[in-house]
Amino acid sequence: MKITLVGCRGFGRVHLNAYTELRKEEIGKDLEIYVFSRTEEFAKECMKEFDANGYFTSYDDVLKSDANIIDLVVSHDAHETMGVKAMQAGKNVMIEKPIARTEEEAQSLINTSIKKGVKFMVLENHYFDPTVWKAKELMASLGKISLIIVRNTRRNSPPGWRRDKRLMGGGALIDGGIHYIDTMLNLGGEYSEIKGLCKNTFSGLEGEDTSGGIFNFKGGYLGIFMYSWASKSENFSHFEIYGERGSIKEDGVIYSGKPYGNLIVDIEGIKEKMIQIEKINTVKEEIKGFINALIHNNEVPMNPKIALRDLIAVREIYRQCGEI
């Protein structure tokens, strides 16, 4: 299996570390990893640092190669153009979240993958965190649900393309915030409406750096969402679920490679207890799942329509804010 990573900097290094770990497992023992950078010196450095099998400095050469998978860790504006070109060349494609900047770009990627018969998945590592799915399983124990809260705050003033609203497709929400939108929708299900607010304060972005939303879920409960790059990061619960018989809270203690910690369950008739969740590298697990789907010709573990669902919610908050 040959994989070419496009984007050695930033989160691309997280992918490369995941590949290093995968090569220690049975599924990855025959993996060949190639890297791409337009700067040859950096491409060589990246290849040496991560013990890759080779490097490219031309994307056209990547497309002409015999790579089975192209892993795109690039700016949001390049997702559709580079992804579609790869699919048209017969390549299976992984793209870091978000799926794209707009619904139209996202649908173009999905349609092309179907037309060309290649596998396509958005790498949304929060979707692969077992903490979320254990909480979802336990929700039935709460009886009637009243409220779901999902939030994350941090101080972040990124350089480069993330400051550009056009390249990003927005601000902090479409970048880091879409992770937590994914969690909100995985827990809450379908919604009938969203009320959103956004602010641009002092992070240096052209787009918003702080946003909030209220989801009116069809299950009869509310979801309150908050995300910011202009607030101090605190060790609080990243999600909380309240029902008539008690609550389920993520404990806020984050482990390397895993977005969420353990669960604190307080249900009527049961003494409050901590439920320990397996500590996994969610980036490694999502990539491993995609490789497995290719080997066994199965459906990818996260359908790209889920990534489109998440983008639609982000875009609705932007519409409510007057950002688009």
Rank of each mutant, 00 (worst) to 15 (best):
E21H: 11
V122S: 07
I295P: 05
I241G: 01
G196L: 03
E41V: 13
E240V: 10
K195Y: 13
A18F: 03
H238P: 02
S231W: 15
G83T: 02
S203F: 04
E96N: 10
T201R: 15
D61G: 09
I149V: 15
G7A: 01
R163A: 09
G213I: 00
E240I: 11
V253S: 11
D71V: 00
A67V: 11
A67C: 11
V150E: 02
H296F: 14
Y55N: 06
D51H: 14
I280E: 02
H76I: 10
L187H: 04
T57D: 07
S211A: 14
A307R: 00
V84R: 05
T282L: 04
R162E: 11
N152T: 07
K85N: 08
V73A: 12
K218N: 11
H79P: 01
S37K: 03
D71E: 10
V35A: 00
K91C: 01
T131E: 05
A140C: 10
K195V: 12
V314I: 10
P130S: 06
Y127A: 08
I174S: 07
N53G: 13
R309L: 09
Q320D: 12
A67G: 07
G10P: 01
M168R: 09
L22C: 08
K144L: 01
E234L: 14
H238W: 12
I194L: 10
D266I: 03
P301H: 00
V283R: 08
D164G: 02
R154L: 12
R162N: 06
G90T: 01
K91M: 03
A43T: 07
G212R: 02
T201Y: 14
G28P: 03
M1R: 05
N156E: 13
G7W: 01
I241R: 05
K249C: 09
G246C: 09
G177D: 04
S228Y: 08
F290T: 00
L185Y: 03
N53D: 15
E316F: 00
A106I: 00
T4K: 05
V73H: 05
K271S: 12
I264L: 14
E234F: 13
I99S: 04
E25A: 10
M139D: 05
E32H: 13
F290S: 00
H15E: 02
M94W: 00
Y19I: 06
N17E: 15
T131F: 04
K44W: 03
